[in-house]
Amino acid sequence: MIRFENVCLSYGEKQVLSGVTLHAGPGEHIALMGHSGCGKTSLLRLAAGLVRPTAGTVACRAKRLAYAFQEPRLLPWFTAAENVNAVLDGGRADMPKARKWLAEVGLADAADALPRELSGGMAQRVNLARTLAREGDLLLLDEPLKELDEVLREDMLALLKRHAAGKTLLVTTHDMRAACALASRIYTFQEGTFVPANP
């Protein structure tokens, strides 16, 4: 589904990734771990085609991509339901579907709230609802449990696990428990590249 071959990435003078080789087949779940700023997000951005590698290749065969950014990136002029609806293909007719996704993340009552009226945790859940609503065959989740309290983390973890089944997943996290729950393979950052944590 997605293959990184000897990928290097630099931002100006700063080398972020060097020689990353990683392959995620259909239905495989991979967690990327490492300290803040090590290049986890950059790898997801490479997978999504938002940045190009300085060297090496990224081959992605996903038909439909679903990307949860680390920060919610909600359209500030739309309600929570409209934000979810924006990624659906049916236009206004898909509003009930959007509301259903919000109900899945426990935000049925906040469907008509504007992003500025949501707490950080609520906005993050709208972000997750929007990502899952995309129903992509490749899920890229960048610290999906950020801003969530312990109870919500458990709920969202269960939800993500359920909806990621059968799909390819690349998830970044600092939480070893979440990584173990979501992924079958865990990679950690070492000297510019990601290496298997449990070879």
């Binding site: 999504a48 085609g49 938002l50 439909r64 991509l65 990307y67 950014f69 920060e71 990136r73 359209l75 002029w77 739309f78 924006a86 990624v87 995309r134």
Partner: peptide, 24 residues
């Protein structure tokens, strides 16, 4: 720019990006 990236990864058409991101 963050919202434009969102539009890109969500595969918004040019028209949809104009309507949902640029317009507002």
């Amino acid at each position: 720019r963050d919202l434009l990236e969102l539009a890109q990864v969500c595969g918004f058409s040019r028209w949809k990006t104009a309507r949902l991101v640029y317009g507002p």
